[in-house]
């Protein structure tokens, strides 16, 4: 890139600047990766190697004992989380898609205002609704199980799911909708023919977003399904580690195990995850 006009001194300065930049970037990588290093290293250590003085060293014998113990303790929770987050995120996406379609392309008077009022729901501290929600779930016999928890996640996920689809559908040209209308297609037929076939990216974004929030949620789970046996992996994990009697190698293996699904999703589909983040800040 250097042009002949650039003098030697200026070039040297440019190279120094670039080196400093990459060094800074790498040091941030180190900071972010440091806890992961500890997690990985400790989780593969045998029990007699986890004393604090050797905590930063690599294991001298690598073993998956901690992993298998942690798996035994968390497998019910992992299963429950899966049963919650997979159907839950799909239902969220279907609802979000229909709502987003109406708000973007089949608008009723005052749609924007109604939508903004709905959006408030995704920012509230859920403590402010928790006691009534517990009462309602108890009333309909859904307290203390995954189905009630799923219902609550789906309902409080409506604002963000709708928002993502609404912003996405705004980019579909109105002429396309109009021409379908002229051809005599009604609202649902236009949706099925024109909108739905173009929705795949938004579905991916919402499903990832809702899957991650349902999987990682602790607040709703601990209030609505407090018993660790019936609850999600976050509650099981907290229950396991909270007492502080479980050795650290098992705790760390458990933490990794509980994070694996969301991490895999993030690694494979990170760019869709990013779009969900942007939508969460009301930025498209």
């Amino acid at each position: 890139m250097a042009t002949p006009a650039v003098t030697g001194a200026a070039r040297a300065r440019l190279i120094t600047a670039r080196t400093v930049k990459y060094l800074l970037l790498l040091s941030f990588v180190l900071v972010v990766a440091m806890p992961v290093y500890v997690l990985l290293v400790t989780s593969f250590k045998p029990l007699d190697e986890i004393d604090p003085t050797r905590a930063w060293d690599l294991p001298s014998t690598w073993t998956t004992d901690a992993w298998s113990t942690a798996y035994d303790q968390l497998k019910t929770g992992l299963g429950n989380s899966l049963m919650l987050a997979v159907p839950g995120s799909i239902i969220s996406a279907v609802l979000g898609s229909l709502n987003g379609y109406v708000l973007a392309k089949w608008r009723f008077p005052g749609a924007d205002l109604v939508f903004t009022i709905c959006l408030f729901g995704m920012f509230i501290p859920y403590q402010a609704v928790m006691i009534p929600v517990v009462k309602v779930l108890t009333e309909v016999d859904l307290y203390g199980n995954i189905w009630g928890l799923m219902m609550v996640h789906v309902i409080y996920g409506i604002p963000i799911s709708t928002l993502i689809f609404r912003n996405y559908y705004a980019s579909i040209p109105n002429e396309l909708i109009e021409s379908a209308r002229v051809d005599g297609a009604g609202m649902l037929r236009t949706y099925a023919w024109i909108v739905l076939p173009n929705s795949a990216p938004a579905f991916v974004v919402v499903i990832i977003w809702q899957f991650t929030s349902m999987w990682n949620d602790f607040l709703f789970a601990v209030f609505l399904v407090p018993s660790a046996q019936d609850s999600t992996v976050t509650v099981a994990l907290n229950n396991l580690t909270g007492a502080n009697v479980v050795p650290f190698n098992q705790q760390m293996a458990g933490a990794l195990l509980a994070s694996l699904p969301t991490l895999v999703v993030y690694i494979l589909l990170g760019r869709f995850f990013m779009r969900g983040l942007m939508a969460g800040a009301l930025k498209s």
Binding site: V29, P35, N216, F248, M252, T262, L263, Y266
Partner: peptide, 24 residues
């Protein structure tokens, strides 16, 4: 690469990362 690394902690629950931070 840098972007993905910097953003990845967002994909983990506070309950899981809290375990390692409690230790750290």
């Amino acid at each position: 690469f840098f972007r993905s690394v910097y953003l990845f902690p967002m994909a983990i629950s506070f309950i899981a990362s809290g375990i390692v931070w409690r230790w750290l």
